[in-house]
Each structure stands twice: as structure tokens, then as C-alpha cells.
Amino acid sequence: MNKKEYLKLVKKFTPKEKKLKNAFNAFLMGGTLGFIADGLKCLIVKWAHIPIKEATTWVLIIYIFLASLFTGLGFFDKLVMKFKCGLIVPITGFAHSITSSALDYKNDGLITGLGGYLFRLAGCILLYGIIAAFFLAILKVIIYV
């Protein structure tokens, strides 16, 4: 059996995920999160009389709190399995990754477990975000200043 035939066999036996349904689910969930965020922002601006920028930050904090709470309660993992990128790409995915690695490694001790592994999944976001932003900021300074 050569490599091509083997790859064909592998392709035959890997379970076919319903791509269309996954994409639709992700679109619906992501859209709903965006819709609620904008509605919440308008409500906060209207009722608490604070500027739009601060209201947006409050919305983010509320989202992070809810994602952490639901991860702790245990049913957020099932939601992520169903909606996938609809919950991973928004800020809820960031909070979910931090909280779930905190919960997973809690038993290994406070320093070596919780402290060491807290950013196991979210570290790549921080690392590459900061590296990219730093060098692009230098580029922006060169262009505009």
C-alpha cells in the first residue's frame, strides 16, 4: 500500500463533521453574542450615564465573568463543543481557556499547578498579540509621526 492509498483510507474512516451545520451554529452564536453586547452597551450608556468607551469595557467584563462562571458550573464545555468558534473567537473563549486550565491544574498545587499552568492556552494570544502589536506600533509611528 503506498502513501496515496493510505491517505485515501484515512480520509474514508475519519468521521465527516457536518461543516455546514457547524458554520451555521457558529454564525448564529457569534451573532447573538454581538447582538446582546451592543444591546447591553446601549442599556448601560442609557441607565448609568457613563461614556461609550467605559460601557464597552463593562460589557467585556460582564462577558468574561459569565464565561468564567459557566465554565466553573460545568456546562460551558458542552456549549463550546456544540457552537465551537461561535464561543471561541469572542472574548468568552479567552476567559474559558484561562478558567478551564485553572480548574484542571488546581490539584497539582497552588504554585506549580495553578500558577504555572494558568496561561497554558491563553498564553499564545498574549505572546503573539503583544509581539505583533509592538512591532506594528513601531511601523505606525514611522508612518504617521
Partner: peptide, 24 residues
């Protein structure tokens, strides 16, 4: 927001990237 999540899901389904790759 739905469109961004849709793009992410399409990348996730059609390549062997993990969610970590997508968020990065």
C-alpha cells in the same frame, strides 16, 4: 460578530488548525 465566527469555523473545519491557532 457572526461573520467573524463563521470565518473562524470555516478555517477550523477545513484545516488541521487548533482553536489556539485560530485565536492567534
Amino acid at each position: 460578530c457572526g461573520f467573524i465566527c463563521l470565518i473562524g469555523q470555516i478555517i477550523l473545519d477545513n484545516t488541521n488548525f487548533t482553536p489556539g491557532h485560530i485565536t492567534t
